[in-house]
């Protein structure tokens, strides 16, 4: 740790604590267990990466924090979500509306659909400012709209344009400008660069990093790209079938010498390397389980090469070494090498 003591105290203020969050979708086909007992916390200025494949429950976790789960089907079953010590789950709609946008805001995956095609981008940025600054007039807020556009690298004169007049990268910048309009303390970015080309992705990630420093925002970065995680995050939570299977500081997750969850190892092995020479990839066999019908015991056991009898039912061992946590029976014996047999 190379922070100064002063920095340490300031940075340990907990912005968000999620504890044992369980969320389900009640559908005609049965109850879909999207998030099953997820816990993590974010300190000030910290970025946590939620990593996993489609259906791992990353987006549902984000929507549960924002309380934007679909009203008829989505439901938070249990757990607690505290924003600076304040429980969010007991808040009513009006109270949540004051928090959303002003304290916690979200960048959605697809900039092509996140913007309203019938409003100019200036109006859309103004809209979120106006909701949280009802005491100010449009004239007072207009300079802030210009300032926000310039902040994300778009000339202010373009505020009179509609979304279709911008390219994908510029649209995502506008979505970021809207999310940052009220200087929230926490930003949830749901796959912010998945729909963009690599060079544009690099521009957007750079911009987010700069803004994070400037505004001291904390961030939840949802992604399936381990490269993006390595570039942007401080902490990482690897999710599988609605659970966090491995959690730790970035250095701990990316250190090959430490023990890891077999799923994390599988994820790393599945990416073709830019430098290595291996000719054949090592994919994880099988598929993500159906969240309406999750396996007993460890959710990963049907796909796990190291699966043991005791993984198929009952509680799974929780390994803890400082900040590094792994949910896997392999960690039960031999804390150092992580191998059971």
């Amino acid at each position: 740790m190379d922070h100064t003591t002063e920095n340490m105290i300031e940075n340990t203020e907990k912005i968000l604590e999620v504890e044992n969050l369980t969320a389900v979708y009640n559908t005609d086909a049965g109850v879909v267990h999207a998030v099953n007992g997820v816990s993590f916390s974010i300190n000030k200025k910290e970025t946590i990466g939620l990593v996993g494949e489609t259906g791992a429950g990353k987006t549902t976790t984000a929507l549960a924090i924002m309380q934007l789960l679909p009203e008829r089907t989505g439901e938070v079953k249990s757990g607690s979500i505290r924003y600076r010590g304040d429980e969010l789950l007991t808040k009513n709609k009006a109270e949540m509306r004051l928090i959303r946008g002003a304290c916690i805001s979200m960048i959605f995956q697809d900039p092509m659909t996140a913007l309203n095609p019938l409003m100019t981008v200036g109006e859309q940025i103004y809209e979120s400012l106006a909701i949280h600054n009802s005491n100010k007039t449009q004239k007072e807020l207009e300079p802030r709209v210009d300032e926000l556009l310039e902040l994300v690298g778009i000339p202010a004169r373009r505020k009179i344009n509609y979304p279709h007049e911008f390219s994908g990268g510029m649209k995502q910048r506008i979505v970021i400008a809207i999310a940052l309009a009220c200087e929230p303390l926490l930003l949830i970015a749901d796959e912010p660069t998945t729909a963009l080309d690599v060079t544009i992705q690099a521009q957007v990630l750079n911009l987010m990093d700069e803004l994070k420093q400037k505004l001291s925002t904390s961030m939840i970065m949802i992604t399936h790209d381990l490269g993006v995680v390595a570039q942007t995050c401080d902490k990482v939570a690897v999710m599988y079938a609605g659970e966090i299977v491995e959690y730790g500081m970035l250095e701990e997750i990316f250190d090959p010498k430490r023990p890891h969850h077999p799923y994390t190892i599988g994820l790393f092995n599945a990416i073709p390397s830019l430098t290595g020479e291996s000719r054949r990839l090592k994919p994880i066999d099988g598929l993500m389980p159906d969240p309406a019908n999750l396996p007993e015991g460890c959710r990963f056991h049907p796909r796990c090469q190291e699966c043991m009898e005791r993984c198929k039912s009952g509680e799974i061992y929780q390994y803890e070494n400082g900040t590094h946590k792994i949910k896997c029976n392999l960690m039960r014996k031999g804390e150092n090498d992580g191998r059971a047999d």
């Binding site: 690599v198 060079t199 992705q201 690099a202 990630l205 750079n206 790209d225 381990l226 490269g227 993006v228 995680v229 390595a230 570039q231 970035l250 250095e251 990316f254 790393f268 990416i271 830019l274």
Partner: peptide, 12 residues
């Protein structure tokens, strides 16, 4: 240069 590498330390 724009590809994010899944290796820490190598900042973009």
């Amino acid at each position: 240069a724009a590809i994010p590498q899944p290796v820490i330390g190598e900042k973009m």
